[in-house]
């Protein structure tokens, strides 16, 4: 009998926690756990909304660039537009929705493959961020009330962790408890079948992409609040980190299979690995390289773990 992917991943996470708890220096302290959470909120948010897109059989390579564009426009609205940061933040969410809407329009109305469309907008959104700031302009000196979102704590827990938990819970309900989630699953499993079954395939796909844009904008806000500076290079490479977490979390890249809690476990497994390696004396000077290397291997192992028994089963004489 095959174990559920999420269970295996949970075991991996527990092994990581135990191993680093023993071998890592000051790994299990509250401050360090808070660090792990704070540093993975942005990639976690992107992974949470990448998940439905992938579940429905698509992909979104533009989320990192959307983050960069939104960070820059947020800064622009607040500093040059003179808006209070709260208003600028809401407007930024709208900009994120527009960015996601651009993807959605091209993908659903013109029936173009999401990989190509988002490869184009990956370049376009980052390019707009660079063009708006000429590459050089940086937005900084945000008010403390805003920076609190990224550096403060509420009830002992990092402020942005609450935002993340809220989004995670909402996404869980949306994917696992509503017709939206079921239709994404159906579309990913068999797009034509879903169409014949009367599902509004285009609208459901569009919704997933717009959602991705909005949450990428939210990630832009927590990123800026944590780092204190918004520049055109914010979020570079985050799309791949998010996809890695989603796939490690057991969502099939072909769509149709996946869970939100799996994605959360994927985010956690990668974040704990990276943090833990920087605390074990033998690896602390190569933590950056090793965490990339081991994440890659973990990804293959996680997938192969499911595939190897199948491979043997096929070869068993019937």
């Amino acid at each position: 009998m095959l174990l559920r992917h999420e269970t295996v991943l949970l075991a991996v996470l527990v092994v990581e926690l135990v191993f680093f708890g023993v071998a890592g220096r000051n790994f299990g302290t509250a401050d360090n756990i808070a660090n792990i959470v704070r540093h993975s909120v942005e990639i976690g948010l992107l992974a949470l909304v990448m998940m439905p897109v992938v579940l429905a059989g698509g992909i979104d390579l533009s989320v990192g660039s959307t983050l960069g564009l939104c960070a820059v426009l947020f800064g622009k609205l607040w500093r040059d537009g003179g808006l209070p940061w709260e208003v600028a933040a809401v407007a930024t969410l709208g900009i994120g929705a527009a960015a996601g809407g651009t993807n959605a329009l091209l993908i659903t109305a013109l029936r173009l493959p999401p990989l190509i469309v988002t490869l184009g907008t990956y370049s376009l959104f980052r390019g707009l961020a660079e063009a708006i700031t000429r590459g050089t302009d940086a937005f900084t000196r945000f008010p403390p009330s805003f920076l609190f979102l990224g550096t403060g704590r509420v009830a002992g827990i990092p402020a942005q962790a609450w935002i993340f938990a809220l989004v995670a819970a909402a996404m869980w309900l949306l994917v696992h408890r509503t017709t939206f989630g079921r239709s994404w699953r159906a579309i990913g499993f068999a797009p034509e079948g879903a169409r014949y079954a009367g599902l509004p395939v285009g609208r459901r796909l569009a919704f997933a992409h717009v959602l991705a844009g909005i949450v990428a904008a939210l990630a832009a806000i927590t990123y800026t609040a944590r780092f204190g500076t918004a520049k055109a290079d914010a979020g570079t490479g985050y799309e791949l980190a998010a996809i890695t977490a989603v796939v490690l979390g057991g969502t099939s890249i072909f769509g149709g299979v996946g869970s939100v809690h799996g994605t959360l476990l994927g985010v956690a497994a990668i974040a704990v690995l990276g943090n833990g390696l920087s605390r074990v004396p033998a690896t602390m000077s190569n933590a950056g390289e090793l965490s990339g290397l081991l994440t890659g291997m973990l990804l293959v192992l996680a997938l192969a773990g499911g595939a190897v028994p199948k491979w043997f089963a096929e070869r068993r004489p019937r």
Binding site: R226, D233, A234, G288
Partner: peptide, 14 residues
Amino acid sequence: AELIFDGPVSPDPA
């Protein structure tokens, strides 16, 4: 002394 040498491998400024 013990020296830890680590830094970003990706171009992410944060």
